[in-house]
Nucleic acid binder design. Structure first.
Lengths: 341, 341
DNA sequence: GAGATCAGTGTGAACGCTAACAAGTTCGTG
DNA sequence: CACGAACTTGTTAGCGTTCACACTGATCTC
């Protein structure tokens, strides 16, 4: 069977010798070149399996100047949103024959993002996806070697880099309108952390929906995506008068709100309706099951790769902007507004 | 400033010319060789920044036969556990100067794992972490080129591959004992999916704790980690007589149980106590806040890299087994058993 | 002060692969 | 049967790095 006289793994020349052809023919077989006689191909393939040969992608990258490696920079991959997006990216990339190298950031300042991009570009990635949805992260893309395709998720609005995003404002509008249509006079909002693009988009959509309906726009409560923040906001809301509807900027904060209201003895949805954002798998099992905006992260991930590959083929000139529409899932945390007693 | 006469990115020779030294000296500066005169070093470094030079890691890998790339194979990176582990792995690897290439699996059969490992080894990774906690995934490691260090998370018990794991059985024992100490006669268990090592470990720990206390061991309810499964199990439990304590094999299923019990009008913890496993960030805000077993995924990730690097230095001979102890977090979903009426 | 050591630098040859070209082989066609 | 157009294969030359070694001059050591 395998006869590796030395411990050194076999290289193309070994396969060539084994099959009685030149190394170039082996290369042709490996790269699916059309002009190889079927029986030669078979002989080479047999030699490959016999020797357990694996091609050296570093050598290949060196000469082709293509690493077939895509870089991903992301903030806290522990969160459901980024994790799902990356999952989609990885699946799509692999299908297209690309590897994915990931850098997860602890903090989302310009320097971290710049460092991460430097790090990846040294590695020679063919393209980069940046899941760093803060306005301030935008300029970091400049340190990318010119000509490297890049895609930002929910990213910067600068004209020269492609963006794939979910229509955050539309999602927020969906949530807010849903509550207004149930007869609530106005809707309170628990925001994400400042400087995040999602925070801004959702804030804007919520405000717009209220203004379009001619309703008062209450002061938003500051949050940071964590259930703790939602809990704090929930306690404040419970202490306020006339609150009947709350739109939390994500499901985790909605969970915190639910918890706080429950502790205060406020019934959801009888006294207060709550809507979230994301549709994490858990939200259908909250108490009560959460009405929320659904984001198709998987599709976002797939789109990122499509855009990136398109850019790779076309030369980095092109620049697209792809918007994925949000969905809306009605569960049991929202109900018609109680009549004012 | 930058004067790249051509579009071609600068290479070492360009830096050498710019600094008036040989390419080898540039290499020495880049690799922190001791024998370089400080002013030469400075001149080279200046040339590097002036030209915006970045070294080509493919070329480096070709000659050193080290890619400085670690591969990670993981099942569903969307789940909190794998996501956190990978996060820890990535952070530790980057600190050590390694890149991380990730393959997420949709299904966890031998073939998928084997394919993933093939894929990574073609890329020439220096080592592999497998987060594929199923017994059946073990043999897939064999297709790794011999000599490639590998670490399994919660992995196979085969003697020739290193393992980093959390003591699942101990965690389950902690949970079960806690409930018994609260005066519950026995504890029901909602399991993970079959063939998972975590499932087995938790089942075993639970069973052991009951037997040690001389208590009856009820038939476990089958689950699959999802809140849906927990919900189904919760409904069954609510319909059964004499159930006062439930240990769910993860927090998401515990959430489903909580939801089902709440729908059935069963009070937690007054009538039934519930314990989970994982301590996901949401669990502190469930209704009621969940008592659960804490897993330090971050530490697991760090340990994986430590073991891997140790193996890289020592040559693949060594093989370690590192067990991380679980923690236990008491919240409000457990209480003393109600007196039998 | 001659030989030995050492710090600092340069030279040439790989590493394993693909691209470009060259060269042989087959086939059809006038 | 000779001509060119395919098809099939081999040869050569890099890609950008690091490694092994050779070389210089300075600093020791006895």
């Amino acid at each position: 069977m395998v006869a590796p006289s030395k411990r050194r793994p076999p290289v193309m020349a070994d396969v060539a010798r084994e099959a009685g052809v030149s190394h170039q023919t082996v290369s042709r077989v490996l790269n699916d070149h059309p002009n190889v006689r079927p029986d030669t191909r078979a002989r080479v393939e047999e030699a490959i399996t016999r020797l357990g040969y694996r091609r050296n992608l570093a050598a290949r990258a060196l000469v082709t100047k293509r690493s077939r490696m895509l870089g991903v920079v992301s903030f806290d991959t522990t969160l459901y949103g980024p994790a799902s997006t990356i999952y989609g990216i990885e699946q799509a990339a692999r299908t297209a024959g690309y590897f994915v190298s990931i850098v997860s950031l602890k903090t989302l300042d310009v320097d971290s993002v710049r460092d991460a991009i430097d790090y990846l570009s040294e590695q020679g990635v063919d393209g980069v996806v940046v899941v760093a949805p803060r306005r301030s992260a935008g300029p970091a893309l400049e340190s990318l070697p010119s000509g490297t395709p890049a895609v930002a998720v929910e990213g910067t609005l600068r004209g020269d880099v492609s963006v794939v995003c979910i229509d955050q404002a539309e999602g927020a509008r969906l949530a807010t309108r849903h509550l207004l249509e149930l007869g609530h006079r106005t809707v309170h909002h628990v925001t994400g952390p400042p400087d995040w693009l999602e925070t801004e988009g959702r804030l804007e959509g919520w405000r717009a929906a209220l203004e379009e309906a001619g309703r008062p726009v209450p002061e938003p409560l500051p949050g940071d995506w964590s259930p703790h923040a939602g809990y704090a906001a929930g306690r404040s809301l419970a202490a306020m008068d006339g609150v009947t509807a709350v739109f939390a900027a994500n499901d985790q904060m909605a969970l915190g709100v639910l918890r706080a209201l429950s502790e205060e003895g406020v019934k959801v949805p009888d006294q207060i309706s709550v809507v979230g954002f994301d549709d994490i798998p858990e939200s259908a099992f909250f108490s009560p099951p959460l009405t929320t905006v659904r984001q198709d992260f998987d599709q976002v991930g797939r789109h990122c790769i499509e855009v990136l590959l398109r850019q790779l083929d076309a030369g980095a000139g092109t620049c697209e902007r792809l918007v994925v529409p949000p969905g809306f899932v009605v569960r049991s945390s929202t109900a018609a507004a109680a009549r004012v007693p």
